[in-house]
């Protein structure tokens, strides 16, 4: 008993000493911590709303528990399958298109011997990344416009019919993916370009002496050297598969293409903020977050097993 008291006492003495020594550091970090508690951790507690029937008068704490009712409602909803399929096909399509392309782009750029050309291509390819989503989507809608869009003007020139691209569900995913590739491919390649710059040139010299062509050098020298970078990024991307950018889909969405463009995050917004069905929306959002975490952890575990590279 005495011992315990003494230990406790020394704990408080230590705390006081620490506070005395580092009070400035505490003073700096406490407001930031308070911000995160209010704006991140309180909403995390708020996910309990997914298991409660929200009543504005009673607040989150006072609302009655309803168990898994809202999850059941979501799993049996008429559009459940559509939302899941759209979310995952859009992001898988985007991953399959953008991921290899940015690596190939970096590899090819690395072998451009003409310095000014290389610099220009790099600078120009990064530029679209800085456009806002609103601007990008307006460019897409303008270019795809049925009467005045440049794509249809060009189609007409070669004798093809005009297509109202954004009103056709079958076009939506390709429009989303390829405009995204255009916007981010250059910027995504930066990390590979810097990894390639770090490849030991002696390996290339050895390969040249052995008579390797440039394509063989790409395949057998460059690719294995940047493998850790590739795997790290792949894990991150797979972890984000259930996270399709809300803004872009939302901005390109209209009633006509909705069968292909309704995804989990736009549905959460519709149900939550437009229909004010708070509990249902929270349940869907929570479902999405959980899928994300499962994907990230399993992608990481898989890569660890297969290649010995991992994120954590």
């Amino acid at each position: 008993m005495k011992k315990c008291f003494a230990k406790n006492n020394s704990f408080f003495a230590g705390l006081r000493k620490e506070l005395q020594r580092n009070w400035i550091l505490y003073l700096m970090i406490v407001p930031v911590l308070a911000y995160f508690i209010i704006f991140s951790y309180v909403p995390m507690y708020g996910v309990t709303l997914a298991f409660k029937k929200y009543n504005a008068k009673l607040g989150i704490l006072g609302s009655p528990w309803v168990g898994l009712k809202y999850f059941q409602r979501f799993f049996t909803a008429y559009n459940f399958k559509q939302l899941i399929t759209n979310t995952f096909t859009i992001s898988a399509y985007y991953l399959l298109a953008s991921f290899p392309l940015s690596i190939i782009f970096a590899l090819c750029l690395n072998y451009v011997t003409n310095k000014p050309l290389k610099k220009t291509v790099q600078m120009v390819s990064y530029a679209p990344h800085f456009l806002s989503t609103v601007v990008l989507c307006s460019m897409v809608t303008l270019f795809m416009h049925k009467d005045t869009g440049i794509f249809n003007t060009l189609r007409n020139l070669v004798g093809l019919e005009s297509v109202q691209f954004l009103a056709k569900p079958e076009w939506f995913k390709s429009i989303y993916v390829w405009s995204g590739v255009w916007q981010h491919m250059g910027f995504d390649s930066i990390i590979y370009i810097s990894a390639l710059a770090g490849v030991d040139y002696q390996m290339h010299e050895a390969a040249i002496i052995d008579g390797a062509t440039k394509i063989q050098r790409m395949r057998y020298v460059d690719l294995p050297s940047i493998k850790p970078t590739i795997i790290m990024l792949l894990i991150l991307k797979i972890g984000g598969l259930a996270n399709v950018g809300f803004e872009k889909v939302f901005l390109l969405q209209n009633d006509l293409n909705k069968s292909a463009s309704a995804i989990i995050s736009t549905y959460t917004y519709e149900v939550g903020l437009l229909d004010s069905d708070y509990s249902y929306s929270t349940a869907i959002g929570l479902f999405n977050t959980i899928i994300n975490i499962i994907l990230l952890v399993s992608a990481n575990a898989f890569c660890k097993k297969v290649t010995d590279e991992s994120l954590f």
Binding site: L33, F36, I38, F39, S40, Y41, V42, P43, M44, Y45, G46, V47, L49, I60, T268, Y269, G272, L273, Y278, S281, T282, G285, L286, N288, T289, N292, I293, L296
Partner: peptide
């Protein structure tokens, strides 16, 4: 860890909106 946890898990749209 307290800060990094918020990178992976968040309350989502409605809980944040209600706060």
């Amino acid at each position: 860890w307290v800060f990094m946890f918020t990178m992976y898990f968040s309350g989502g749209l409605i809980p944040s909106y209600l706060v």
